[in-house]
């Protein structure tokens, strides 16, 4: 027999390649330089308030300097910048994912495959949507593997893929950043309630929108907060409602004055209990000034419309 054949020449060797060096499989794309890039313009808008927005811009700059270092081969420098950034509070999931991916790439380049694997896994799992989809796909692969093993070894147990549904709720959705036209729902016989309630609800929300603006301008924090739904409102990424509430106290009360004007207001009823208001918000205080498009979702609870989401659609340039 031909002995000492150059490895990996056999099935066994093939298995070793497959099993022990799976990380290479992962890293293959990385060797081609598949670092994830990130720029603030590719990130969809979230509940980013003016201060958070400037923080995001700062983080983006910091990300870019890490990117430059990585591209020019200064991996340690890149690692330093990105690790530090990863410690900060990140409000945009795209940035979090780019950071986790890239830190894993750096680990792979250092042949620290085990840690890289952990990091990549957690990066995937940190997005529940991707994690669920990936899991469903893997269940299919597992099922196919078992079915195929069964062709070789008849007694192999085969479990049917369970698969998991993904829930979708507009409140948790990342809304389009650009000036997307939303066509008002067409009212038909199927939705007579919309036809009946539209005018009344939309008018009511338009009124509330202005009252909310006034509370803000008047720096009346309690009045201002009363327009938000304390249980359903989703504050900025990762922030608890109480922490957000506290930060609003500062935002409303610190400035010496606040001027706000709403323009180009569009109010659309999405369903019986949900109304979307989109408008140009012109904000000015002694500390800060900007014009942004904003989307605010109002939800009907116990006969009262409350804000459940507040999103910056785009900075108006």
């Amino acid at each position: 027999m031909i002995k000492d054949f150059p490895m990996p020449s056999t099935f066994e060797a093939a298995c070793i390649v497959m099993c022990k060096r799976m990380d290479q499989w992962f890293s293959k794309s990385i060797k081609c330089g598949l670092l994830l890039s990130f720029s603030v313009f590719s990130a969809p808008a979230l509940s980013v308030e003016e201060e958070a927005f400037s923080m995001l811009i700062e983080q983006t700059e910091s990300f870019k300097s890490g990117w430059k270092a990585a591209q020019s081969g200064q991996l340690e420098q890149a690692n330093k910048i990105w690790s530090a950034l990863n410690e900060e509070k990140i409000i945009v999931p795209e940035l979090t994912r780019a950071l986790q991916n890239n830190l894993a790439v750096l680990l792979i380049k250092q042949e620290n495959y085990l840690q890289a694997e952990t990091l990549l896994n957690s990066a995937l799992k940190s997005d529940p949507q991707i994690a669920t989809t990936l899991d469903n796909l893997n269940q299919l692969y597992t099922y196919q593997a078992q079915k195929t093993y069964q062709k070789v070894f008849r007694k192999t147990a085969v479990k049917l893929p369970k698969a998991e549904f993904l829930f979708f709720d507009i409140k948790t959705a990342t809304l389009p950043t650009e000036n997307v036209e939303i066509t008002p729902p067409k009212f038909s016989a199927d939705a007579p309630y919309l036809a009946q309630l539209e005018t009344q609800d939309v008018l009511q929300v338009k009124g509330l929108l202005d009252k909310w603006r006034l509370a803000w301008v008047n720096q009346d924090i309690n009045e201002y907060l009363s327009y938000y739904h304390s249980k359903e409102f989703i504050p900025k990424e990762g922030m608890s409602y109480s922490a957000w509430q506290k930060s609003r106290h500062g935002s409303l009360q610190r400035p010496k004055f606040i001027k706000i004007a709403f323009d180009e207001i569009q109010v659309v009823q999405l369903d019986k209990n949900l109304i979307r208001a989109r408008f140009l918000q012109k904000y000015e205080s002694d500390r800060f000034k900007d014009d942004i498009f904003k989307v605010v979702l109002w939800q009907l609870n116990d006969g009262q419309w409350k804000i459940v989401q507040e999103v910056v659609a785009s900075a108006n340039s």
């Binding site: 269940q139 597992t142 196919q144 593997a145 093993y149 070789v152």
Partner: peptide, 12 residues
Amino acid sequence: QLMKADLLALKA
């Protein structure tokens, strides 16, 4: 079949 199954298992 074994090779196919192995690869699927690893992919999963």
